[in-house]
């Protein structure tokens, strides 16, 4: 069934979109990731204009992270104070990101920037996950091998403007928190992702937050940042496609439930290696397209945008 997307102005198969939403939903349910970093490139591949893909994906992430954070709120695993400070940074970052996006759209370089960001971040994250999960599998074969204790970065402790975060049992400077929030906000606006895949490691390794509150707090921040990003894209770039978002949502919601169930049956290390391979695959395809001479060197953009 073909469906005409009013903002993207292309006609695509509705079942393909539901399927994509479902597929990424399964992955996000299995691996506990938002899935934006996989969905946005997939939308590029099926011919959705990158500007629309990025803005619409931000809208879809609002839904999936809201659904996730409700569960975490019930379990009381959200540090609201930490989330709010991250959020302040995030909103500033998002506003900057949307402006950068708009300027680059006018210069005709936005596709390049978005794709480069993807290649760099997917490459780094994919490689790290691959190495880490290979190590984990090796460790599990050699029982008794010592697990390295987690290091807390001391420079974070030395910064001024300290705040107490009761839920995270931390007394740290608000500067690194704001900076992490801002970095994730910029990425959210440019890449159309929630940024959880960057924020979660940053919260654990830089801030030293306890793992149990990390996911809920990052989801809490992501809702507001992606919501704000959606609003900024909608009012400045007119690139949020509600029909596209809705179709992806329906697939994503169903997929997430299936994924959560599948995830329980598989081993964590094997899951992570699968995810790493997939991330590297998407990264490789994007990099390949940038390096190999395209069959059409010219492209048409409307003058006004």
């Amino acid at each position: 069934m073909q469906i005409y997307l009013p903002i993207a102005e292309v006609s695509v198969n509705a079942f393909l979109l539901l399927g994509l939403g479902g597929l990424v939903g399964i992955l996000s349910g299995m691996f506990g990731v938002g899935g934006g970093f996989l969905m946005t490139p997939l939308l590029f591949f099926i011919g959705i204009p990158p500007a629309v893909a990025v803005a619409t994906e931000a809208n879809q992430i609002v839904a999936s992270s809201f659904s996730g954070v409700l569960a975490h709120l019930r379990r009381k695993t959200v540090d609201l104070k930490m989330g709010t400070v991250l959020l302040v940074g995030g909103l500033i970052g998002s506003a900057i990101g949307v402006q950068v996006f708009r300027i680059l759209t006018e210069l005709g370089q936005v596709d390049l920037l978005v794709k480069l960001c993807y290649v760099v971040f997917l490459g780094i994250i994919g490689a790290l996950m691959f190495v880490e999960s290979l190590g984990a599998i090796r460790r599990s074969r050699k029982p008794g091998a010592p697990v390295k204790p987690r290091k807390h970065h001391s420079w974070v402790q030395g910064l001024p403007f300290k705040m107490r975060f009761r839920q995270s049992q931390l007394y740290i400077s608000s500067i690194p928190v704001l900076l992490i929030g801002a970095a994730v906000g910029i990425l959210a606006a440019i890449m159309g992702v929630g940024g959880g895949f960057i924020m979660v490691p940053a919260m654990i390794y830089i801030l030293g937050m306890p793992t149990k509150v990390v996911v809920g707090t990052s989801l809490f921040q992501i809702i507001f940042v992606t919501g704000f990003t959606t609003l900024m894209h909608a009012t400045q770039n007119f690139t949020v496609d509600a029909v596209l978002a809705l179709l992806l949502l329906i697939g994503g919601v169903i997929g997430a439930q299936i994924g959560a169930r599948l995830g329980v049956r598989l081993k964590a290390e094997q899951l992570r290696i699968l995810l790493a391979i997939m991330v590297l695959g998407v990264c490789g395809k994007l990099a390949f397209d940038l390096i190999v001479q395209p069959s059409e060197l010219y492209s048409i953009g409307s003058a006004g945008h």
Partner: peptide, 23 residues
């Protein structure tokens, strides 16, 4: 555009809520 943006977010939040309750 502003109303549209707010509505898009509202739809997303509603969908997220329904999904969580259904779950």
């Amino acid at each position: 555009a502003l109303l549209y943006g707010i509505l898009s977010i509202a739809v997303a939040l509603a969908a997220g809520y329904i999904a969580s309750e259904a779950f």
